[in-house]
């Protein structure tokens, strides 16, 4: 018995539904992976299931393309974005969680999170253009901060809310200042939350196409922009595209798996209480 329903029909239907959902989720990955190890001569043939696996596409991408550089760009941009977001977001989230008079601020963070990128991209583009920062990592980081900072802050408010207020009271009685209480006692307690928020922010930055597309060039191109290029230039390079897609997807899947249970508290947690 996999599903706990009383009658046999519901049990069968429930199990089948879950099975179908799993296949629908996994099949695209499976097919893309198959494509990535097909010899290039067999690429794009939906009827071919059995073949001699070839790592030619992987070799091409790893040793003979810009993808490693794109990965590095994406990684560097996401990392810096997250670090800045945590440095600015954590103290503010703590303040929002602890002090009176910030109820409005909580919602402005939420509002900032909801801000459509369409309205920010035009001025950001013009500004970066004037500062000659188009095709620079700094430019993309600036843009990514606009959506990572609010998310990270919003996440952290929820985590700080869960820490009993008595802890910093105790630290202050123990002889520390309010600020020391924050970074010596409270920050270590929410370390899992910081990690979860940071990883989630990393994934968001890593996944972005819109800003990166408009703000990067050959030098600073990120992985998503590079992937988009595989279908448009020089015809279709299916095998290589498959490899690039897997390279983009795998680290994100691993990272997000590690924070799943915190995510529920982070996204859901602050929302569920609304």
């Amino acid at each position: 018995m996999i599903v706990s329903f009383e009658n046999r029909l519901s049990r069968f239907l429930g199990t089948t539904a879950i099975f179908i959902a799993i296949i629908l989720v996994l099949f695209p990955f499976f097919w893309i992976f198959l494509e990535s190890i097909k010899p290039p001569s067999l690429g794009g043939r939906p009827d071919i299931w059995r073949f001699e696996p070839s790592w030619e596409n992987w070799g091409e991408i790893v040793f003979n393309s810009n993808v490693p550089l794109n990965i590095l760009n994406s990684f560097f941009i996401a990392l810096i974005t997250v670090v800045i977001s945590l440095i600015c977001g954590a103290p503010a989230a703590y303040a929002f969680s602890r002090f009176r008079g910030f109820q409005g601020a909580r919602y402005s963070i939420l509002a900032a999170e909801m801000m459509p990128p369409a309205i920010l991209i035009l001025p950001l583009f013009l500004l970066l253009y004037k500062l000659e920062l188009i095709d620079s990592r700094v430019g993309v980081i600036t843009a990514h901060l606009t959506f990572v900072v609010p998310v990270v802050t919003w996440f952290l408010i929820g985590f700080f809310d869960e820490v009993p207020k008595d802890l910093e009271d105790q630290a202050m009685i123990d002889g520390y200042t309010r600020f020391q209480a924050f970074y010596k006692v409270i920050l270590p307690v929410v370390r899992p939350g910081l990690a979860a928020a940071g990883i989630f922010g990393f994934v968001l930055s890593w996944n972005d196409l819109f800003y990166s597309l408009l703000l990067t060039g050959a030098e600073s191109r990120t992985l998503p922009v590079a992937i988009a290029g595989f279908w448009t230039f020089r015809g279709i390079e299916l095998g290589k595209m498959a490899v690039a897609i897997l390279i983009a997807v795998i680290p994100v899947l691993i990272l997000s798996y590690s924070i799943q249970k915190h995510l529920i508290r982070g996204i859901g947690g602050s929302g569920v209480k609304y």
């Binding site: 695209p28 893309i32 494509e35 994934v203 890593w206 996944n207 196409l209 992985l223 998503p224 992937i227 988009a228 595989f230 279908w231 299916l238 595209m241 498959a242 897609i245 983009a248 997807v249 994100v252 899947l253 990272l255 997000s256």
Partner: peptide
């Protein structure tokens, strides 16, 4: 969690 552009291309394929 997956890069949306990758999802787009996956399904285009």
């Amino acid at each position: 969690f997956i890069t949306p552009i990758a999802v787009g291309l996956m399904f285009r394929f």
